[in-house]
Simulated scan of single mutants.
Amino acid sequence: MEPLPQRRSIRYNGYDYSMAGCYALTICARDKAHLFGTLPPNAPLVPSLLGQAVLAELTALPTHYPTVRLDTWMVMPNHLHLILVLTRNQVVAVSQIVGSFKSRSYRRWRQGELAAGQVAPPSCWQRNYHERIIRDAAELDAHRRYIHANPGRW
């Protein structure tokens, strides 16, 4: 059997993603399917059961990681945007936070699906995530505005 080819990293080469700072993240649903809920015009997201699990685990991140703070976030029908703040150097990496968040939210939702006699797919998340290292206050403000305006562009 031939080994799988190495995947090209989309991370900034040489950067330590466990360094304190602000990170803008976008995490997508598998196949960009509308799994997290519906977004009526001029109204907030009406979360699905999976969307409720995603919101619960998202807001619980600072409990799981005391050196992490959520600045701004928005759950959309097929993705979520958030600004994650690491408050101390080299305690936890962004990839660890995202990986455990994806696992916990999927597991929470899957347990409910199985308890209700439903079959849950093997995953609800697209592989990987997009991140941007926020470098200054102007960039932070621009990301906040983008996240808050996202439902209006939907």
Score class of each variant (00 low, 15 high):
M1W: 09
P3M: 08
R7G: 11
R8N: 04
Y12D: 13
Y12R: 15
Y15L: 09
S18D: 11
C28L: 08
D31I: 07
K32Q: 13
L35I: 12
F36G: 06
F36L: 14
T38S: 14
P41G: 04
P41E: 14
P41Y: 10
P47Q: 08
S48P: 04
S48G: 06
L49W: 07
L50F: 15
G51A: 08
A53L: 08
V54S: 06
L55Y: 01
L55P: 00
L55M: 12
T59A: 03
L61E: 07
T63R: 00
L70K: 02
L70Y: 04
L70M: 15
D71Y: 07
D71W: 03
V75R: 01
V75Y: 05
V75K: 01
M76T: 12
M76W: 07
N78A: 03
N78I: 10
H79T: 13
H79P: 02
L80F: 15
L84Y: 01
T87A: 13
T87W: 00
N89Y: 04
V91R: 01
V91K: 02
S95A: 13
R104K: 14
R107I: 14
G112C: 04
A115R: 13
A115T: 15
P122H: 14
R127T: 12
I133M: 05
A137M: 07
A138W: 05
E139D: 14
L140C: 02
R145F: 02
Y146T: 03
I147M: 07
H148C: 05
A149E: 15
A149S: 12
N150P: 09
P151A: 06
R153N: 10
W154T: 03
